[in-house]
């Protein structure tokens, strides 16, 4: 067998690294081909469709390409509203989740009793699907739901609102529910970061005379930078993909106050059959995701972490 391989190698004019390339092909080629076709191929096809102006029944016309779809966007109030909502959701959800997660992590890190129980409780919502959380929270928000009942119970009944109907509260209601689901994840990321800070730093800061507040503000939290960056990227990507959550809560038409790009895209493509316009919105969404991931991936690559 070996002699056979050696004689093949002798016949083969390729260098050793080239032959490694071919010999290893069966291991990586099938997966690579599938990813190329179904991920990058689909993205590419979607980009092409966005240039075609395809709508309604019938087939896309691949001979005439136009930027019309992208030109329409700024003047489409629905698109602009959902872009605004997407950014608002992105910023508010990510920011508040990080703060809540950090707060929980700092509390859980103080060697409390039943630490692992608390950790599990906080992390559990993360394990639920968006569909479950959405249904669960729409019950909570319903009139006579848990939230209104609680407000009434503590004599703050005048505060109760039509949370999911009033355009002023819709998006906020969604953001709060998402924060509930993801702050546990932030807590775990921060907890891991906190655990990697040596105890000596706390002690050195105490000897240096730092108050607890200063200790966290100047010594501990700055050292959590990489945890923050990592969690931010994950949260932002989730925020862009919050489609299923809003779809389950409101259907395809949540109204301008709670519309986000993912839902608009779905509605344009699959309800209105504006295929090209839907594809163009998808490209915008993709570009947003890239602007979030890109710098992160680049810095990680620079640091040799990729």
């Amino acid at each position: 067998m070996d002699s056979l391989r050696n004689s093949i190698k002798r016949l083969n004019p390729l260098s050793a690294s080239d032959s490694d390339f071919f010999e290893s092909m069966p291991f990586w080629l099938p997966a690579t081909a599938l990813v190329l076709l179904f991920v990058y191929g689909a993205i590419g096809w979607n980009v092409i469709i966005s240039f075609t102006g395809w709508s309604g029944l019938g087939q896309p016309d691949y001979t005439n390409f136009t930027l019309e779809m992208y030109r329409q966007m700024p003047s489409d109030p629905n698109f602009m509203a959902s872009l605004r909502n997407t950014v608002a959701l992105l910023v508010a959800f990510t920011g508040v989740s990080l703060v809540v997660g950090l707060g929980l992590a700092l509390l859980v890190d103080r060697k409390i009793r039943f630490e692992s129980t608390f950790r599990t409780i906080y992390l559990l919502p993360m394990a639920l699907s968006f569909v479950v959380t959405a249904i669960f929270w729409s019950w909570m928000y319903a009139s006579n739901g848990l939230i209104d009942t609680m407000l009434n119970g503590i004599g703050l009944g005048w505060l109760s609102q039509d949370w999911l109907g009033d355009p002023r509260f819709k998006l906020a209601a969604v953001i709060v529910a998402l924060i509930w689901q993801f702050s546990g994840y932030c807590m775990i990321v921060y907890l891991a970061g906190l655990r990697s800070i040596p105890n000596d730093h706390y002690e050195a800061a105490r000897i240096d005379g730092a108050s607890t507040l200063k200790l966290y503000w100047r010594i501990i939290i700055p050292q959590l930078r990489s945890s923050t960056v990592g969690a931010t990227v994950v949260l932002m990507v989730f925020a862009l993909k919050a489609f299923d959550f809003i779809y389950v809560m409101f259907g395809t038409n949540p109204g301008r106050s709670a519309d986000i790009l993912a839902v608009t895209m779905y509605r344009e493509a699959f309800s209105s059959s504006e295929w090209a316009y839907g594809a163009a919105i998808a490209v915008v969404l993709f570009a947003l995701a890239l602007t979030i991931i890109g710098p992160y991936a680049y810095t990680q690559y620079k640091r040799g972490a990729l």
Binding site: P198, D200, H201, E203, A204, I207, D208, A210, Q223, R225
Partner: peptide
């Protein structure tokens, strides 16, 4: 007394320098 009130300074085995 709290560590800060003792007028002492300490050098740790790990140095405990703040990396940031």
């Amino acid at each position: 007394a709290k560590p800060a009130e003792r007028d002492i300074a300490m050098v740790f085995q790990s140095y405990a320098l703040y990396p940031h």
